[in-house]
Write a protein that binds this DNA or RNA. Structure first.
Lengths: 187, 187
DNA sequence: GTCTATAATTCGATAGAC
DNA sequence: GTCTATCGAATTATAGAC
C-alpha cells in the first residue's frame, strides 16, 4: 500500500516508541521496528537517518506537569504522584526513557534534561527562592522513578497489586515531605 | 602466562562483574570481558558455558542485611539507607543487577528473588505478623532503588552532590515511615 | 514511496591444535 | 590451560532499481 510521507513517518514513530519502551535502546532493532510498522527497514533509515536520531524522535515528550501554585499547599505530593501515575500508564513515553537511560548515555542525558527543564521550573515556582530547591526536586524524582521501576519494570508483586489510591496514600506524603517538609521530620 | 583454573575463573568473573555493572547485560560482550581479563574469549566460554551462565555467576550476591530486631525501633530507616549506600558503593554487585534488570528478564527475576528472599525476611521479623508487610517492604525498596537510580545511574546533579549524611537525613525518614508509620502520616 | 541486494561489522559459540 | 581459526547469525547502514 502506498502511504503519504506523514503517515509513514508517524507509523514508524509509533512502532519505535513501543519497541524502545519494551526492549530499551540496544535490544530494539530497526528491523523489529520496521516489522511492527509493516514496512521495509530501509524506510526507517530514510525517514530518520539512523538509529540514534530515531530514538531522539521517539524519546521526545512533555511531562505536562500542572502548575503547583494553584493547588492546596498540603496536597502537592499526592497530586504529583497521581499525575505521574497517569503519565506512566497513559503512553510509553516515560518508559522509553527509563528503559534506555540505564545503559545509554544519550537517554540518560535526556532524563537529566527533562528533570532540569520540566520538573525543576514547576517545583521552583512552588518552593520559591531557596538553595535546596534542586535537592528537593531531585529527591521527589528519585521516589517517583523508584516507584515506576518497582511497579512497571521490575514488577515487584506487592507494588503491582497496590491500587492507585493506595499508592497515592503511601507515596504522596513522601513527595510532599521532600517538597515542603524538613529533612528530619517523619512518621 | 599459565594460571591455575581457579585463578583464571576468578579473574574472568571479576572482569565480568565490572563490565556488566557498567554496560548492562546486552552491551557487555564476552569479547570485552575477555579483553579486560587479558585472556582469550574462548576461555570465558570454557569456564562458564555461555553468556547467560556467566551473568548468573556475576549477579550472585548477598545483601548482607543486618537484623533489624536489635536496632532502635525509630532508627531502622536511617540504618537501612546507610547500609544500602555502603552496598552500592562497596562493590558492583547491585549495579550489575540494576543495569541489567531493566531490559533483561532473567536479571529482573533475580531482583525479585533478592527482594523476596533477602529483604522480606528481615523486614518481616521487624514488622511481625501483618498483612501489609509485603507492601511496606516493597515501598522501602522502591525508594532505595530510586535513590540509587538517581545518584549512581542517571546522575542527577543534586543527588550526586549530596553527602551521605544528607541523604540519610532526607531518605531515612521515608523508609522509616514505610516500615513503621501509617500511610496518611507525613511531614 | 517502496523494496532488493549487499557492504561492513560485530556477536556468541564451536572445533581443534599445541 | 591457552590460543587460532572460523562458522553462522544478526546488526546498522548504503546504493540503486522500480
Amino acid at each position: 500500500m502506498r502511504r503519504s510521507s506523514e503517515q509513514t513517518k508517524a507509523t514508524i514513530l509509533a512502532a519505535a516508541r513501543e519497541r524502545f519502551a519494551v526492549d530499551g535502546y540496544e535490544r530494539a532493532t530497526i528491523r523489529s521496528i520496521a516489522a511492527d510498522a509493516a514496512i521495509d527497514p530501509s524506510m526507517v533509515m530514510r525517514y530518520f537517518g539512523n538509529k540514534e536520531k530515531l530514538f531522539a524522535a521517539a524519546a521526545e515528550f512533555d511531562l505536562q506537569l500542572p502548575r503547583l501554585a494553584g493547588l492546596d499547599r498540603d496536597d502537592v505530593g499526592a497530586r504529583l504522584v497521581e499525575h505521574f501515575l497517569d503519565r506512566w500508564e497513559g503512553d510509553e513515553a516515560l518508559m522509553v526513557l527509563l528503559r534506555s537511560a540505564v545503559t545509554n548515555a544519550e537517554a540518560a542525558h535526556r532524563m537529566r534534561a527533562i528533570f532540569a527543564e520540566q520538573l525543576r521550573p514547576v517545583t521552583d515556582e512552588f518552593l520559591g527562592e531557596r538553595d535546596d530547591g534542586g535537592q528537593r526536586a531531585a529527591l521527589a524524582a528519585s521516589q517517583i522513578l523508584g516507584l515506576a521501576l518497582a511497579r512497571y519494570v521490575l514488577r515487584f508483586d506487592p507494588v503491582v497489586a497496590m491500587s492507585r489510591a493506595e499508592l497515592v496514600a503511601w507515596v504522596g506524603p513522601t513527595v510532599q515531605r521532600y517538597l515542603a517538609g524538613r529533612p528530619e521530620a517523619s512518621v
